[in-house]
């Protein structure tokens, strides 16, 4: 990881620049309060200002691909046919990433691959209209209807975890019935991406608030659709700021790594290394 001081400096610079260029647009982002979502030393559990994160244990994961399908079901991700797919129009929020082996002759490593929800997200910095932004709880969010489809964010994202709707998605006939009413469908011409199932967090939060209680770690652990479906329980979700949470505990595992960590993006998705013995 790069020098945190340098990064925060860089970040402050970018924020200032953004404020100057975008004027009022950044107000909400400023209000959102940068700074909570660094993965620095975890403090006390504070669900008002959590940093949502995910640990994917590759030593549990079998690449059964349930997570990828569960995401499509939950988030109304449009399916494209073979022709479109081969032209690069596949829309995917979480897929399987295959990494070349480090030593020649060794097996490649596969891993579930959602948006990394970087604390310092390159995509957010380039969006000219503030359609994509960091939420105060560390999610790289996107407001579909604000997106103008310039795709700068797709260029900026070092992980390639953003997809463009090359056309108005179609749900033929009865297929429209199965769409999840909790997640808006995206029109043609906008970029879409993983939201950490933000709608499910929001709902859980409200339910808990109505019941007058705090969020419980157990109900968060398998909250996103990918984590809920995983038969191997390889995906754990929760608050990285809460040192007691399962996700924070697992994130301290010596097997931990982050993808492209040398870029200093500080992903909120932390992988635990596959172990072959």
């Amino acid at each position: 990881m790069s020098d945190p001081k340098r990064r925060s400096l860089l970040k402050a610079g970018v924020a200032a620049l953004g404020a100057a260029v975008l004027g009022k647009q950044t107000e909400d982002r400023a209000e959102a309060g940068h700074g909570h979502h660094r993965s620095g030393p975890p403090g006390k559990a504070d669900h008002a200002h959590p940093r949502w994160g995910m640990v994917i244990d590759l030593d549990r994961c079998t690449l059964c691909s349930s997570c990828t399908t569960a995401c499509r079901q939950e988030n109304n991700v449009p399916s494209v046919g073979p022709d479109d797919d081969h032209r690069g129009a596949l829309i995917e929020w979480i897929g399987i990433l295959w990494q070349e082996p480090e030593q020649p002759g060794a097996l490649p490593t596969g891993m579930p691959f959602p948006c990394q929800h970087c604390a310092d997200a390159p995509c957010v910095k380039v969006c000219p209209v503030g359609a994509t932004f960091k939420s105060p709880d560390g999610i790289t969010m996107q407001i579909w209807d604000r997106c103008i489809g310039c795709r700068y964010c797709m260029v900026a994202c070092p992980y390639g975890r953003r997809s463009f709707n090359w056309e108005e998605p179609e749900w033929s006939g009865t297929q429209v019935q199965m769409l999840n009413p909790d997640v808006a469908t995206r029109p043609g011409g906008v970029v879409e991406k993983c939201t950490f199932c933000h709608h499910r967090i929001r709902r859980l939060r409200e339910d808990a608030a109505v019941e007058g209680r705090e969020l419980r770690d157990e109900e968060l652990q398998r909250l996103p659709a990918c984590a809920a479906a995983c038969p191997a329980e390889a995906i754990t979700f929760g608050d990285l700021h809460d040192p007691e949470s399962k996700v924070a505990t697992q994130a301290r595992d010596p097997r931990r790594f982050q993808l492209l960590d040398y870029l200093g993006t500080d992903p909120s998705v932390i992988y635990l290394k596959r172990d072959r013995r």
Binding site: C64, S66, T69, Q175, Q177, M178, N180, P231
Partner: peptide, 27 residues
Amino acid sequence: RAVRIEGDRDNPLNQGGIGPRGLSGLQ
């Protein structure tokens, strides 16, 4: 309208897990 299928955590066989096939049932 059926809009989501998930594994039943209480079922002793799959204990909440579900495969891509099961998730595609809506389709």
